[in-house]
Amino acid sequence: MKLKLALFAAALTGAMGMGAPALAADAGHAEVHKQSWSFAGAFGHYDRGQLQRGFKVFREVCANCHSANLLAFRNLAEPGGPQFSEAQAKELAAQYKVKELSDKTGDVEERPARLSDRWPAPFANDIKAREAMGGSLPPDMSVLAKARTYHRPFPLFLIDALPGFSYQEHGVDYIVALLNGYKDEPPAGQKLDAGQSWNDIMPGNRIGMAKPLADGQVDYTDGTPATADQYAKDVAAFMMWLAEPKLEDRKRTGFRVVIFLAVLAGLLYATKRRIWAKIPH
């Protein structure tokens, strides 16, 4: 009880901003740059090839430590995503094992995954994950692209909402910058703890994830350059889809809705003018 109240007092102090400046002052050594994304803007859509490459990076690199608990194998074959064929997705699923309570024996048994199964997590729980990762917990990647952002000063943050200038890709831009933001050595006078790396983008600059991507690490078969920078972009795009799998449907539907409403508003306005034509107002 005492502890809880103390915790809330700390939270309130945090809210009042008294605890925050230390963090805020450290960040911002390097800048996040806007990337050019196929899925940006009112008519944006994912680049299938990029999502498939991003999935490859995710599968071969990220998924060794990060979970993606909301991803089901069936999603990989659904419209608006990487759009692997159903046969490919089935074959992929069969390479993974999931645990299930058997209704015959009552024991937890392993079986090959099916399309309806979720992506198996690399660790049984957070405690196991921390133990394996030297104390750091790799966050679940399901909605990570929407859970990250960076500071957009006035007046840029206002422009970000406007049609024609709309900007919703803060998270993926941050992720690309973070993946490219590693330094081999911390700046002079800065010390790192065991298991930490220096990152110019990470708030506080100390990150528990070792530099994950290097040139040539993942084989690309479509001629795309196999560079760390390209991996970062592709995996960020994949993470955007993972976080926002209905993005294409949303933007397509939105376009129809806006056109419908614009025509409706026009017709209503013409009717209104006619009704009011003879009344001075």
Binding site: A161, S166, Q168, K251, T253, G254, V257, V258
Partner: peptide, 11 residues
């Protein structure tokens, strides 16, 4: 409303 909900829903 539609602009926000469909095009910048997390803004």
């Amino acid at each position: 409303f539609a602009w926000f909900a469909f095009f910048v829903p997390n803004y």
